[in-house]
Design a binder for these strands. Structure first.
Lengths: 203, 203, 203, 203
DNA sequence: AATGAATGAGTTTTCATTCAT
DNA sequence: CATGAATGAAAACTCATTCAT
């Protein structure tokens, strides 16, 4: 059974879910969780309001979907970076990706960071852990690279790196100044370049 | 003319305003701007809701008051630190103060950072600039210290330092782990210690 | 797909909207814009308050709907009068319709006039023009009849006629005396009868 | 006992009351009864809010005071007109006074008419009668002049004249067009001029 | 599965009036 | 008498969620 677009019902449903997820990620980033009405997401996805609840039982589930979307973006990025042979280059590629997003970040903040901060204020219920998970995913990947570089305390280094990103994003956003991303990005690249090579580990 | 507490009418009013401001700062930090109802602040201050509007015409003004309260705290801190003769020690004192707040920060985030992030999502209107101003105040103070140390690019150093604080606060909050504050704080102290002495400037 | 009343979903919604519009027109006329709460209109229409906002986004939109309702009534009346061959008779029919409403008018004033007067005090925003439009519609129709009678200055005559109506309505209302409508109505009929016949124009 | 301005206490109080009355008349005319807060009137009069209630027990009393102020203006005007020997000239002087006010009227409507219309929507309680009284005062004066001209049905003529004024004011206000006042005023003057001289009565 | 409509609790804000000094 | 402050009852509007087809 296919519709006019040649999609089966299940496929159409999946496509709608994806559209809603993408819309949620975008709108929640731009307007914030509390200021976003379900109707906003529905409209951005071109889905009637009532229908949203077929795919997501609560607003929280939409937030969770947005977090999942971010995880997806992150995975895609790290997969691409994974093709680079040198872990240092992979880390530098991450930083470069951040700087490339400077305008969006200066306008709306880091998608993950702002979401995590807002989720923290919501009544508890799974979302906290979901936000933590995305953050941890990023930390873990970075720690992995530092580890492969053979550096001591890779987890600490990861916290430093990701923390620097979150901090510069927040400042860039608060001051509405993308150049903060550029300058701090350059500093991070320098720092990564200057790191000694320990006993590199195989991946 | 004084009441039983020995306060004049005007003094009592000023005290109430201060109570409301303090309550606003506290509750807005803990629950976030959007999840805080005026009634929450009123209750925390022991003031009937309607009366709040005698002191603050809008919710935004309460947010602004909370920002002013933070500026006050910051000024008190920097004043205290200002008594230290060495700018490096002053910066280290700042970091130590951050670490001392680790539990609150891990639970609710940096008061200024979370507020700034939320304000960014609100409809524009003065608040953006107010948030930016508090951030800038902190940046400027830090830059001043770096400058007095005779270091190059004091503004950039300040962004790095304050950014690190914002980032570690966000991570500590997202992961609900105060130890992140401890570890990153230690790293910052090391970093400050390792900074070369340029041509120190007189204050 | 029809419900027990034989109405489709869309028809039921349209019916509800009409019910709300009619209720708005009635209640706003009787209680005035400022003294009418949305809840009053909701109750008069038998609709829960929250639901009103599904049909009308703001109170102003309800006022606008009431104005549209008046335009509708006016159009229906002029359509009926339009079947009379003589423009003079059409104008006299209008006056007679006013007099027929004397009791309501003495109690609540002219629906359009009182609404227009109240709208004038509201913060600007489209409503002023809407009110002016209804007034102009009436003026234009009257001017058209005078023009067809071949009289000079048909616009001026229209202002005189409609002005007389507004004035007598206001006095009847202020003095709570419907007989004012009767007497002034009779005078207007005399005046219309006494108007010379100019060079009648074809419609 | 006099203050620095050389006013006795009673005089000062009376002056304040007058200031409040004048402020009430002005502000209520411009903003309408419902949209005027006591605080607005207090501010316009330069009187602290709490103090208003010493002079006027309720908002309604302020409205009443505004009506009394209008009566005062009317009396002053008719007194001035009373010096003219010919009743016809006195009526024409009244019309001229209306036209002179055309800009204010086009902006805010006839002070008495708009107030009367709003009062009609308020919960009953004396105000209705007060408004009616002002209207009647004007009607009676006009009727008197027509009577002195020896014309039949002076009361009806008065209703026609005052009604015309109320109507043209409402139209001028709704359409925001002062020229309506000018044109209708001219017509009324013509009408008065054309009235036959009956058997003039002595005043 | 899809969808327009319904619901009801919650939030900010305004204001007439009162009160304590 | 004067006055800043207090109070509590509205009122408009929003929205997550549910429901009836």
């Amino acid at each position: 059974m296919t519709d006019s677009q040649g999609l089966s019902r299940a496929e159409a449903a999946a496509a709608k879910r994806r559209r809603l997820t993408a819309a949620a990620a975008k709108v929640l980033h731009e307007k914030g969780v509390e200021r976003t009405a379900i109707a906003d997401i529905a409209q951005a996805a071109g889905v009637p309001v009532g229908n949203v609840y077929y795919y997501f039982k609560t607003k929280d589930e939409l937030v969770e979907a947005a977090l999942a979307e971010q995880t997806g973006h992150l995975d895609a990025l790290t997969a691409r970076l994974g093709e680079l042979p040198d872990p240092r280059d992979r880390l530098k590629g991450l930083v470069t990706a951040w700087v490339d997003q400077r305008d969006t970040t200066a306008r709306y903040g880091c998608p993950t960071g702002t979401l995590a901060a807002e989720i923290d204020k919501r009544p508890p219920g799974g979302l906290d852990e979901s936000a933590a998970r995305v953050v941890r995913r990023l930390l873990d990947w970075a720690a992995d690279q530092f580890r492969q570089l053979g550096l001591p305390d890779p987890d600490g280094q990861a916290v430093t790196l990701i923390g620097a990103y979150q901090g510069m994003s927040l400042l860039a956003n608060a001051l509405r100044d993308p150049e903060i991303m550029t300058r701090e990005g350059a500093r991070l690249l320098d720092w990564l370049d200057g790191l000694p090579v320990g006993t590199p580990r195989l991946r």
